[in-house]
């Protein structure tokens, strides 16, 4: 098994006719993922065509889910409309919504988060690269690619990866794949201060997933999600974890690209997070160049 999604998961894309959504819909189809529907209000009845693929477009998420059996949505909708797009998935009772959109206002997200409490729908993101459960084929073809990650760098295997940053996830995945170690599932939880699924939530899922044998957890400055995950891992996680925290050199009070990457009032520092991880028995990589190596040592593979 993997977590959250498998190669059989049926996925719809909100914003499939926009340039960004269309480009990544094509890449996911090429990767062999089950992209079964698109949603663009006003374009229902048309098709998204790519090679031999002909993906039906619907006006609403509810119609798309009902007629195609999609259980997961990917949101590529621009920031002013993204919160509404997420709520539409909650209303349609989807299992999972993955919000790629960067730049959603905080006020919109805190209302979405409040509204989602107690609902059956899980949110990943926003401002995230998405999820990849690698496939069995060449260059991991045939897996489930939701979002914007490069599919070919993956390999089917037993390491779970969770991160707030897209490119650092790719870096870790590539280091693993180059050393012959594959991934069960890679989850980008996003760089915004208000997100749906935390490091801790993903750790729980990896801990329960029989296919996942070891975990890489990548964090960055800002907030306290990494500390909470580390504390939980110390008591409950049965699997070896390696970690990395970006932003040791970031000046306080400045937002480092990601809306959530900021040290304020002395809180959310890299030092604090690294100390919490070490105290929890997580092997912390000294530099981002040795994330895979650190895990493999800790896991007893080197």
């Amino acid at each position: 098994m993997s977590i959250l999604v498998t190669s059989q998961t049926r996925v719809l894309i909100q914003g499939i006719t926009g340039s960004f959504g269309a480009r990544h819909a094509q890449l996911s189809l090429d990767y062999g993922s089950q992209i079964v529907a698109g949603v663009t209000p006003g374009k229902g009845g048309k098709f998204f065509e790519h090679g031999a693929h002909k993906v039906p477009i619907f006006d609403t998420v509810e119609e798309a889910a009902h007629q195609t059996g999609a259980t997961v949505s990917t949101v590529f909708v621009p920031p002013p409309f993204a919160a509404d797009a997420i709520l539409e998935c909650v209303d349609a009772d989807l299992d999972l919504v993955v919000a790629i959109t960067e730049g959603i206002p905080i006020n919109d997200m805190i209302r979405v988060k409040q509204k989602m409490q107690g609902s059956a729908t899980r949110l990943i993101g926003p401002n995230c690269p998405g999820i990849v459960t690698p496939g069995e084929g060449e260059h991991s073809h045939g897996g489930c690619r939701i979002g914007i990650a490069p599919g070919y760098i993956h390999k089917r295997g037993n390491v779970g990866v969770v991160s707030r940053s897209g490119t650092l996830t790719y870096e870790a995945v590539w280091q693993l794949t180059s050393r012959g170690y594959g991934q069960s599932t890679c989850v980008g939880i996003g760089g915004d201060p208000v997100n749906g699924t935390s490091h801790l939530d993903v750790l729980r899922l990896f801990n329960e997933d029989p296919e996942t044998e070891a975990i890489i957890l990548i964090g960055e400055i800002g907030g306290s999600a990494e500390e909470e995950a580390a504390q939980w891992a110390a008591e409950h996680c049965k699997k070896p974890i390696a970690g990395f925290i970006a932003g040791t050199t970031a000046p306080p009070g400045r937002r480092m690209g990601h809306a959530g990457a900021i040290v304020s009032g002395g809180k959310g520092t890299a030092e604090g997070k690294i100390a919490a991880m070490k105290a929890a028995g997580i092997a912390v990589a000294e530099t981002p160049s040795v994330m895979a190596e650190t895990l493999l040592r800790h896991w007893g593979k080197l």
Partner: peptide, 17 residues
Amino acid sequence: LVNGAGLAMATMDIIQH
């Protein structure tokens, strides 16, 4: 000069390291 915010932060860190 880096692509991606996380990687950009990590690049600053590794220069200092």
